[in-house]
Simulated scan of single mutants.
Amino acid sequence: MEAACSLLSKLERRYLLYQLSDGRRANIDDLIDQIAAWELEGDGQGGYDAVDEETRQQVYISLIHNHLPRLADYEIIDYDLRSGDIVLDDGFEDIKPLLEQFRQTEEHPELRKRATL
């Protein structure tokens, strides 16, 4: 449980897993744009329209040097940087219920408000 909470504590990892859980596979380029837009939207800076090359680069670096290897170490995902393909691995099922709780909280502002009180 401690490892699952640690893995899901970072917003970028949760967004990555939300996207993968909807389709079970994705390409890193698509995920970079989606994650950057979510982050900017959450910061009140827009969304897709506000994603610039610098933001994309920052998300890319954090994914390949931190988030993807960490999730792969726990067999949550498997990825190939040459092709850019990222797929869910068997370990995802272990954290899926907790991820869904995070998703519900993040998608519903009234739950987010209660969580901060």
Rank of each mutant, 00 (worst) to 15 (best):
M1N: 11
M1H: 13
E2F: 04
A4W: 02
A4Q: 08
C5T: 11
S6D: 05
S6N: 05
S6E: 10
L7A: 10
L8W: 06
S9W: 09
S9E: 10
K10Q: 14
L11A: 08
E12Y: 11
R13D: 07
R13S: 08
R14F: 10
Y15Q: 05
L16M: 14
L16V: 05
L17Y: 02
L17R: 03
Q19P: 01
S21I: 00
S21L: 00
S21P: 04
G23E: 15
R24W: 11
A26R: 11
A26K: 11
A26S: 14
N27W: 13
I28M: 01
D29S: 12
L31I: 12
I32N: 01
I32C: 06
I32H: 03
D33H: 03
Q34H: 13
Q34I: 12
I35T: 05
I35G: 08
A36M: 10
A37R: 01
A37T: 05
W38D: 04
E39P: 00
E39W: 06
L40S: 00
L40K: 07
L40D: 02
G42K: 02
G42T: 02
D43K: 03
D43G: 00
G44A: 01
G44Q: 04
Q45C: 00
G46L: 02
Y48A: 08
Y48Q: 04
D49Q: 10
V51K: 06
D52Y: 02
D52T: 06
D52C: 00
D52W: 00
E53P: 01
E53S: 14
E54T: 14
E54S: 14
Q57S: 13
Q57A: 09
Q58E: 15
Q58R: 09
Q58Y: 09
Y60E: 13
I61A: 15
S62F: 02
I64T: 15
H65L: 12
N66S: 15
P69I: 12
P69Y: 15
P69W: 13
P69N: 14
R70A: 13
R70Q: 12
L71R: 11
L71D: 13
A72M: 08
A72P: 12
A72R: 09
D73I: 05
D73Y: 10
Y74V: 01
Y74K: 15
E75C: 00
E75L: 04
I76E: 03
I76P: 05
I76Q: 03
I77W: 06
I77P: 07
D78H: 10
Y79W: 12
D80R: 03
D80S: 10
L81Y: 10
L81V: 09
R82P: 02
R82T: 07
S83V: 09
D85Y: 09
D85E: 13
I86Q: 13
I86C: 12
V87I: 14
V87M: 05
V87G: 01
L88Y: 10
D89V: 03
D89C: 10
D90G: 09
G91V: 06
F92T: 07
F92V: 08
E93Y: 05
D94M: 03
D94T: 05
I95C: 01
I95Y: 04
L98G: 01
L99M: 03
E100A: 03
Q101D: 06
Q101R: 05
R103G: 02
R103Y: 07
Q104M: 08
E106M: 08
E107P: 00
H108T: 07
H108K: 04
P109I: 14
P109K: 14
E110H: 07
R112D: 08
R112Q: 14
K113G: 00
T116V: 07
L117N: 11
